[in-house]
């Protein structure tokens, strides 16, 4: 039996539902030396801002049982350098390219999305969920009003489809998702990291300079799954499930919870070939179970 892993995400065809999550895959180059990243459904770029950003000082990474805390702080080369230096390299791979954009203020998001209008991209992922910058970003994703207003403006500016990456720290993530849909979003991705902290008892201070950081990895998977399920029930635009997906079984859970696509984050650090293994694992499972297309099992719960 031939099974079909392809997914229709609005008008865009993805060859399979496995997408590399923003901030865990750079611009793909490092992983392309390990496997053919063109086998992935898509790649989300490192979070981009209008101007280059150096990121946060101090410790940026801390491990916790079944999870990782990070406080990278959106280090990135800026939109212009991305278009000039990174995007042409990414275009060599036969995969969908999603530019993740963040900002401290509304104006930054608008200008960033304008600059990307002439870039050969498949989608924009609006990052209103990064907990590691002092201004903006997650602040937009906390309430439905601020999220909806920003999405409306970006939809007005951008010629690319716009998906919105939500934060589990929102007051009510389902309402934020609904507000994004009402504002014209083409899709929702969730969840970004959970705002968390760590303490160094020897030093008697917070591990991170920003005190709070973002928790990812298997520790957050059950929460992510519940939120994806709730959002999928509430909106009719397609959803990308993210949060602690380590293997094909986890990926299938998110599909059954209603996600169209899934993103692999922390797993890329644990095993750089995680994306490749998840694609083949999903295919094997479908063949074994006689599932011809993911539509048969999507959202069955």
């Amino acid at each position: 039996m031939t099974c079909d892993l392809s997914v229709k995400f609005n008008y865009l065809d993805f060859k399979n539902p496995v997408v590399a999550a923003s901030g865990t895959f750079g611009f793909g180059e490092e992983y392309s030396r390990i496997y053919d990243v063109g086998i992935l459904g898509g790649i989300c770029t490192k979070g981009l801002t209008l101007e280059p950003k150096e990121g946060n000082n101090g410790i940026r990474l801390w491990e916790t049982p079944m999870g990782v805390l990070n406080s990278i702080g959106m280090e990135n080369p800026g939109i212009e350098a991305f278009i000039k230096n990174e995007l042409p390299k990414m275009k060599k791979w036969d995969t969908r390219i999603i530019a993740n954009i963040g900002g401290a203020a509304e104006e930054e998001y608008i200008l960033a999305s304008e600059m990307l209008n002439n870039a050969d991209l498949d989608m924009i992922e609006l990052n209103i969920s990064c907990p590691n910058v002092r201004e903006g970003c997650m602040a937009f994703g906390m309430k439905e009003k601020s999220a909806g207003e920003l999405v409306e403006k970006i939809k007005h500016t951008s010629r690319h489809p716009v998906i919105v990456k939500l934060t589990p720290n929102a007051e009510n993530i389902v309402r934020v998702a609904e507000a994004c849909e009402a504002a014209g979003a083409d899709g929702i991705s969730l969840i970004n990291t959970v705002k968390a902290m760590a303490v160094d008892i020897k030093e008697r201070k917070a591990v991170f300079e920003n005190i709070y950081a973002g928790l990812s990895g298997p520790a957050i998977k059950p929460i992510a799954l519940r939120m994806v399920h709730e959002v999928c029930k509430a909106v009719s635009i397609p959803v990308i499930g993210i949060g602690g997906i380590m293997n094909w079984k986890d990926a299938m859970e998110f599909i059954m919870a209603g996600a169209h696509l899934i993103q692999i984050g922390t797993a890329n650090f644990v095993n750089p070939e995680a994306g490749k293994k998840i694609v083949s694992g999903m295919k094997d499972y479908m063949e074994k179970e006689g599932i011809k297309n993911l539509d048969e099992i999507r959202g069955i719960i």
Partner: peptide, 21 residues
């Protein structure tokens, strides 16, 4: 440095140098 991926993707071990990060 503390490292995440070890291959240059996660930027956990980013350090300031005379020639930028």
């Amino acid at each position: 440095s503390r490292m995440g991926c070890g291959i240059g993707a996660c930027l956990s071990c980013s350090c300031k140098t005379a020639n930028g990060n």
